[in-house]
Design a binder for these strands. Structure first.
Length: 278
DNA sequence: GACAACCTGACC
DNA sequence: GGTCAGGTTGTC
């Protein structure tokens, strides 16, 4: 899933349901994706839910944290105690736990399920002060709509790599993934293969604004549910209805009608309008 | 920079 | 059967 808007939507849901909730038990069904001592969290109370880029951190009142990265297909779904009936309508509660439920966290007020078809995601229990020992968090760059200024962004662009690879590099900019990178480049009329250091100051500013625009839109509609992504209530987001070029190979460009092209860049599907993006 | 690895599932 | 998928990490 899950780029910044999707993970933030999950964070808001976790905060809503779990602030001040106490863990009673944890069932690790796929040990490969869970590291650290689950026993450290038993009887601990949640006193915060934070997000850094695409990473989630649940803080507990005993000095430990549970860090979670959902990668491509992870889901965190919460079933409040006694509300299974509410979910049956949506066929979400019925599927929990399911074939792809790899960890279950039991709280005093309900149950949090971690599902992940591809099993790329992970959950790690560490002491709060050791969060930065996890490579993902240690190397994470600044984040749009948060602490990444236009000046920071301009500095990041001093690179000979392609602009798309640069804005998707989590160590340079946190939170931008394939969907929002493709759409932001389209909105700012920049070809994804351009060298980052070839952008004019005007283009850099336009891309900076475009990134904020697409991420803000994603946040507004609860993220993009192209396949597996749902929020903690098991509900889909709406950004897939606003895709500009992502996944639209062969379809007409919204602005000029030229067919959207697809290439591979950094191993990822890359969509652009050959007419509008130079 | 390109590519493979980690996995399962959907689609052609 | 092959290709592709909201990600990250580790090789050449």
């Amino acid at each position: 899933m899950p780029e910044l808007p999707e993970v933030e939507t999950i964070r808001v849901g976790l905060e809503k349901y779990l602030l001040d909730a106490t863990i009673t038990d944890i069932d690790v069904r796929l040990p490969r994706i869970f590291s650290g001592s689950k026993d450290s969290l038993i009887s601990a109370k949640v006193d915060g839910v934070r997000r850094f880029g695409k990473g989630l951190v649940m803080d507990f009142d005993n000095g430990y944290v549970l860090a979670v990265h959902v990668k491509m297909t992870g889901q965190l779904i919460f079933l409040p105690k006694g509300e299974r009936g509410k979910f049956e309508k949506k066929k979400v509660g019925d599927k929990l736990p399911g074939l792809h439920t790899h960890t279950i966290l039991f709280f005093d007020r309900g149950t949090l399920y971690y599902n992940d078809i591809r099993q790329f995601g992970w959950l790690q229990v560490v002491k709060k002060d050791d969060l930065k020992k996890i490579p993902f968090f240690r190397t994470l760059g600044k984040e749009p709509l948060k602490d990444l200024s236009l000046q920071d962004f301009t500095a990041v662009l001093r690179s000979g790599s392609s602009i798309k690879n640069v804005i998707m590099d989590q160590a340079k900019i946190a939170g931008v993934g394939n969907i929002y990178a493709n759409d932001a480049l389209y909105l700012s009329k920049i070809h994804p293969k351009r060298k980052a250091n070839s952008l004019s100051p005007k283009e850099a500013e336009e891309l900076f604004v475009a990134l904020e625009t697409v991420l803000r839109k994603g946040l507004e509609v609860g993220g993009a549910s192209e396949w597996q992504y749902v929020n903690v209530d098991g509900q889909s987001g709406g950004y897939q209805n606003f895709f500009q070029v992502y996944g639209k190979v062969g379809k007409p460009c919204p602005k000029c009608g030229t067919e959207i092209e697809k290439i591979t860049l950094g191993g990822r599907g890359t969509f652009f309008c050959p007419e509008c993006q130079k």
